[in-house]
């Protein structure tokens, strides 16, 4: 066998192995998602049967979605709650971390580093352990069992990562650009909005994605802090459906709920992933 033929064969083998491993790994990741989506389209009765094969045998049906929609106060109420909570959390997180990150990056003040480390170190507190005090505080503030209250909790939990992220984003913008804007006559807020914000947008996108995913999927705090059934967010609703009437589980409704909850996360991530990668690696290489 000639040398070129041998090296071509070896390359073919290498590439095949490479693609096989990649294919297996992506199958492992995608299978549960595909399973959920497929089951959600089975008729309600079929969805309760043993799960093989995972795809609908007796034809596609939207029965599960109809059941889901009728549950409790109606799916739109819960989706609305979840969307409100997530949107407010994203907004709050972005605004606060933008300003705090700018402050930590640009201003010199006493105990700056101590304060920064203190904020970062709060990620080490398991938040389940402070749920009781949080509950009591929110009750005192009259925010218990309100969406605003839960937004406050989510925003607070997002702070360490978000402030860290935004400080790094601002650190990677040269000070000269800011000085140039000041010399051009921009006030602090004009400069932040027109010069700095576009430059730290990848960081903002990352912070926004994280805040959205965290608040959209959060279960425990929502379960404990929201007591009124009308105010449930989607994860709490899912738990309520699962432990349905008399211990029976409507698997079809659960899977359709999962599919519905997954969609906005995927859409948002695909929309912002370009910024997201840039944000995470900001300042890593010059």
């Amino acid at each position: 066998m000639s040398r070129t033929a041998r090296s071509a064969r070896r390359r073919w083998l290498g590439e095949t192995r490479y693609h096989l491993v990649g294919l297996t790994a992506s199958l492992l990741f995608l299978a549960p998602l595909a399973w959920s989506v497929l089951v959600s389209f089975k008729p309600s009765l079929e969805a309760r049967q043993p799960p093989l094969p995972p795809w609908p045998v007796e034809g596609f049906s939207f029965q599960n979605y109809e059941n889901l929609a009728k549950f409790g106060a109606g799916i739109w109420t819960y989706s609305g709650n979840s969307l409100t909570v997530s949107a407010m959390t994203v907004l709050g997180t972005v605004i606060i971390s933008l300003l705090a990150g700018y402050g930590f990056s640009r201003f010199q003040f006493p105990l700056k580093n101590v304060l920064f480390v203190l904020i970062i170190s709060t990620v080490m507190i398991p938040f389940q352990s402070i749920l009781t005090p949080l509950f009591l505080i929110l009750t005192k503030l009259g925010l218990q069992n309100t969406l605003a209250g839960i937004v406050c909790v989510y925003v607070t939990l997002q702070m360490p990562f978000s402030i860290f992220m935004m400080r790094n984003a601002f650190d990677s913008v040269p000070k000269d650009i800011e000085d140039a804007a000041r010399a051009d006559g921009a006030s602090v807020f004009v400069m932040l909005r027109r010069i700095m914000l576009p430059l730290v947008l990848p960081g903002v996108a990352t912070v926004a994605i994280f805040a959205f995913l965290a608040s959209w999927n959060e279960f425990l705090a929502a379960l404990i802090l929201l007591t009124d059934q009308k105010k449930y967010t989607l994860p709490v609703l899912m738990a309520a459906i699962r432990s349905g009437q008399f211990g029976t589980i409507d698997w079809g409704a659960v899977q359709s709920g999962v599919t519905m909850m997954m969609a906005p996360c995927l859409a948002l991530f695909l929309l912002l992933q370009r910024y997201y990668i840039r944000g995470l690696t900001a300042g890593a290489v010059k």
């Binding site: 000269d176 650009i177 000085d179 140039a180 804007a181 000041r182 010399a183 006559g185 010069i195 430059l199």
Partner: peptide, 20 residues
């Protein structure tokens, strides 16, 4: 006074153009 009110313009070593 603020930089903008001094009637000066500055050119920086790093150019400091607005990249976006």
């Amino acid at each position: 006074l603020d930089p903008a009110k001094r009637g000066i313009a500055m050119v920086f070593q790093s150019y400091a153009l607005y990249p976006h």
